[in-house]
Nucleic acid binder design. Sequence first.
DNA 1: CGAGCTTGTTGACAGAGCGCCAACAGTGAT
DNA 2: ATCACTGTTGGCGCTCTGTCAACAAGCTCG
Lengths: 215, 215
Amino acid sequence: MSSAGTPPAPAAGALRPPVIRGRRLEPDARREQILSVAVRLFGERPYPEVSTTDVARDAGVARGLVNHYFGTKKELYLEVVRVMLTVPEVALSLLPDGGPAERADAIVGWFLDVVSRHSTSWLAAITAGGMAGDPDVDQVIAEAVDVAADSILTATGLGADPGEALRGMARAYVGMATCTAREWLQRGALTREQVHTLLTTTLLAMVEKVFPQAT
Amino acid sequence: MSSAGTPPAPAAGALRPPVIRGRRLEPDARREQILSVAVRLFGERPYPEVSTTDVARDAGVARGLVNHYFGTKKELYLEVVRVMLTVPEVALSLLPDGGPAERADAIVGWFLDVVSRHSTSWLAAITAGGMAGDPDVDQVIAEAVDVAADSILTATGLGADPGEALRGMARAYVGMATCTAREWLQRGALTREQVHTLLTTTLLAMVEKVFPQAT
DNA sequence: CGAGCTTGTTGACAGAGCGCCAACAGTGAT
DNA sequence: ATCACTGTTGGCGCTCTGTCAACAAGCTCG
């Protein structure tokens, strides 16, 4: 503020380049457009390697507009992570009424379907590509993990008012699920069948032998 | 503070700040000193929130010296992560000769000892505090996970030439172990006993029912 | 014991990225 | 057609990073 007291008259010879792309859009539409570009870029490269200049250029707008809609680069990234992790609610009512084995098998299959569909962007988001440790980012991810953990508990019939310990165990299981998915989708060390078997077997073992010990 | 700047006001006219701290150190000693400061700072805050200026100030040296010894901020961070994840080799020979249950119990206990001892810095490193997604950082972490996974396989008697699938499963288990440790040390949702039970039971289930299916 | 050399160390410079702001220019209402 | 409204732009200042030539501390040699 101090310096630029001079308001007008920037002046004289400054011929502004004829701005063609000054097309006016509905705020929601513009915001959505910028967000979609950001989702793509943050899915390809980690956080520090994506500049707001990149987002603005790919969206065909000025960089200032990105800040106008999202405030901060970090806030933009938070929106991106929310979008990436927003996943169709598990159709719990569609889970078979069979025994624990069938229900575990069904929810694991549903999880693998979701993950494989979004693959890269989902993995980039769940690992907080380049922003893990930030409180806000961690919270958004933690909320997504909580949703997944609750689905697990509900599917295994323990969803009714689980204690904090039980939820912690479910979150740990979700953590293993994401690591296993990475071994499958990123490293190619496992096949989908192997992942499915591992997650189902482990879930059953936890339901039978570990969960009961959680008051 | 540490920097304690005001010198004995030597010469008058000298515009140059009287440099007192130009103390000369052996390269190895200086490097070690800067590295220890960096380990502390990166253990407290995520990557983007630690500037090389902070490291230099806390180490009592000029910022340029940090770059002189470590080249880049990222290279410095790589050294830090290596230090944080370098962990005493598991004394496999000390594992009991008993059945799988005893051996699993022993290695899980050893893992929890190591993690709880380094707690914050270890967790910050294993989650790549703010640098996940970077190829180099990910590789350093992947190597540490590989070491842990091999320890698991060795302890369970499967260490002799495991296939890629088996190693992938072991890495997934290590991933769950880190997530579980976080639930214990960071969120406080689980007690050490609960973590121990969860990891032991899960490991046994995997050894008995999942690993055999990995060709 | 002083001159000179080696090299650890410093401060400054240039480039890049980000947040902010005032002016500009489409768009609909009067 | 004029005017108000607001979406949009381009540039300013700041912080942070990597590089570099100059400085000086400590050792060696005469």
